[in-house]
Amino acid sequence: MTDDSLTGRDLGTMTFPVDRSKVREFARSLGDLDEVYTDVEAARAAGFTDIPVPPTFVVSSAHWREEDNMVATLGLDLRRALHGECGWEYYGPVVVGDELTASRRVSGVSTREGRRGGTMTMVSIETDFTNQRGELVVRQTDVLVETGG
């Protein structure tokens, strides 16, 4: 169970490199053989300064978190917690060679009565990714749902 006092809580900041091998691995794990994700010449021909990242690539920052037990940090019950939504707003390109800093915070908490009884709690988490020039390039918003117990 969690409450409104969580809203605004800082969930930490970390920095990670956008690595060529990881971009290739990520695109191929999604069945995408577009050379733009593997070949710098193809990427430049497509108008990018270097190999760009797939739309959902920033989630791979999970590899760089020392401890990614967000559910427990928020006081949610792991057995009843679900990832309900995930979204990204794109403000600028992310390419191989960039170094991204991810800052995460709780942006909102709400509750409603679940269809099968009990109170559902929804926690929204915002993660801002800024590059080595301090430019906000991607904002990710996750909604975690704890179903009624």
Binding site: A27, L30, G31, D32, D34, V36, A46, G47, F48, P52, P54, P55, T56, L82, H83, G84, E85, C86, G87, W88, E89, Y90, P93, T141
Partner: peptide, 19 residues
């Protein structure tokens, strides 16, 4: 990836999924 192949990777302004 299919969205990027359809509209262009650099053209995507927002993408939001509900499971």
């Amino acid at each position: 990836q299919r969205l990027a192949a359809w509209v262009g990777l650099a053209a995507i302004r927002a993408y939001r999924i509900r499971f």
